[in-house]
Amino acid sequence: MRRFLARHATLVVLSCLSLSAGLAVLALRGEAAVWRALWAALDLAIFIFPVLGAGLLLAATMRQLLPEGALSRWLGAESGLRGLLLASLVGIFTPGGPVAAFPLVLVLLRAGADRGAVIAFVLSWALNGFQRILIWEIPMLGLEFSLLRFLACLPLAVVGGLIARRMPASWQPDPR
């Protein structure tokens, strides 16, 4: 039982959230609202599943096209605005969640990247990493919204890198 819960933690948490939302709607808005929401969910599912397949295929293909190490070649001691732009670009094409991206920071540092480039990379990955956009954002929120957010966030990683270069705080990589 415990192992089942640990393995399917996401599903269990989401089920609990959905169930409590359902009960709250039932209590506050009545039974008709519950049915309306469930029908809307079905409608959404029909809308989302075709594009989810495409998003997943594109994400998996990109992971194969960009093997580990292919990205770090592009990063180095490039300074100035060019370094920040490159770091942002690499951030977008970095796959995976936090576990995958933070170790890349160490690769970056070893390659001689400066503080601004490292911050630009992490921010760009967090804001516009391709995997989350392809798997979650486009299927759920649509291509127009995803494109709007992508474009609005595109220059910001560079802005963050510029700010980081001017920060008085001194951060040196942990030798560990």
């Binding site: 996401t10 599903l11 989401l14 089920s15 959230l17 959905s18 939302a21 359902g22 709250a24 709607v25 506050l28 808005r29 609202a33 519950v34 309306r36 929401a37 469930l38 809307a40 969910a41 959404l44 599912a45 989302i48 989810l52 397949g53 997943l56 994400a59 998996a60 798997i135 759920m140």
Partner: peptide, 23 residues
């Protein structure tokens, strides 16, 4: 593999989204 993992998650997440919109 990702499809199989995500289908149940999204199956539960969608009603959560629409119920939440009612709230």
């Amino acid at each position: 593999g990702a499809m199989l993992r995500l289908l149940p998650v999204i199956g539960v997440a969608l009603p959560m989204a629409t119920l939440f919109a009612e709230l």
